[in-house]
Design a protein around this nucleic acid. Structure first.
Lengths: 159, 159
DNA sequence: ATGGTTGCAAAGTCTTTGCAACTAT
DNA sequence: ATAGTTGCAAAGACTTTGCAACCAT
């Protein structure tokens, strides 16, 4: 195990490297490995820490450079959550989007084939060829919404 | 004219200021004015420059602080386009989302009531109270898609 | 051998904070 | 008078770049 994960992604990376006359390296392999392994969205820092657990000789700079490389190869996608830059595998088996709570910063995930279908329609109407998307709904989760309602009615009662 | 624009937004800001025991200021008014005036998404820098044309005594710091204030008041929304932090009025008469070209960085806008409706359903299913959303579809615009297809078939022909 | 890759330290961005002067209430 | 606001300069956080050593091809 380990090396059996991400066969396809490895191939994509190899192809990209070959096409651009770039080289393999232990660091790149290690980063890819870790990156694909964790489904969650990682910050540069988290990724760095995890990679370093496996291989001490990986610098922060390399993580930045490698993430850029992954993006160019179409393997990674950058997203901003709660003001933080994060990254996720682009060939996500099943793509998901986010519900972000403005109260407690919780992040719920959702998928909606219907929305994806509508997106394609919208894009087609503009002659646009879709590569991916990013869809964030922000507001208040069940708990925070309840708290807010309470706070609001309390205020209303006072005035 | 000028002062007639953004009546509602002024009211919202006033209410927010009052509720939080904050004060009015010429700078805040000027920034709001300019911010509402331009429909496009502005970077902090652009906003600063435009505001300074009207009022020299506005510092960059104040723009940052005021944008944060606007966000808290629900008047502004932050978004990341092409790696750049930008802001747009949140009470946008009609909310729009973006199609972003990875080739030429063009940004097309779209609206889709159907998608908005589905969003509400998704949110409701999670007990989530929607305040807003951000939906970016990225890929290639008509022209760039055509160029890419050409480039790809050329390569295929060569190999 | 050639030319891409790496880590480090330095330089760059963009954003926030400390502070004294200023201003709305 | 009191308490929030401002601009500036300094500090911070995050990212990129210059460079000499290193490594894949």
């Amino acid at each position: 195990m380990g090396s059996s994960v991400g066969q396809k992604e490895r191939a994509i990376l190899s192809a990209h490297l070959a096409r651009h006359h770039l080289k393999r390296s232990g660091q790149r392999e290690a980063i890819l490995e870790v990156f694909l392994r964790c489904e969650r969205h990682l910050s540069v820092d988290e990724l760095l820490r995890r990679v370093q657990r496996k291989r001490r000789d990986v610098g922060r700079t390399t993580v930045y450079r490698t993430l850029k490389l992954f993006q160019e190869a179409g393997l990674a996608r950058e997203l901003v959550l709660d003001g933080e830059n994060r990254y996720e595998p682009a060939h996500d088996r099943e793509h998901h989007d986010h519900l972000i709570c403005q109260g407690c910063s919780a992040i719920l995930e959702f998928t909606s084939p219907e929305i994806e279908r509508l997106q394609e329609q919208v894009a087609a109407a503009h002659g646009f060829e879709v590569q991916g998307h990013r869809h964030q709904i922000y507001g208040y989760c069940r708990d925070c919404a309840a708290k807010r309602r309470k706070a609001l009615s309390r205020r209303a009662g006072l005035s």
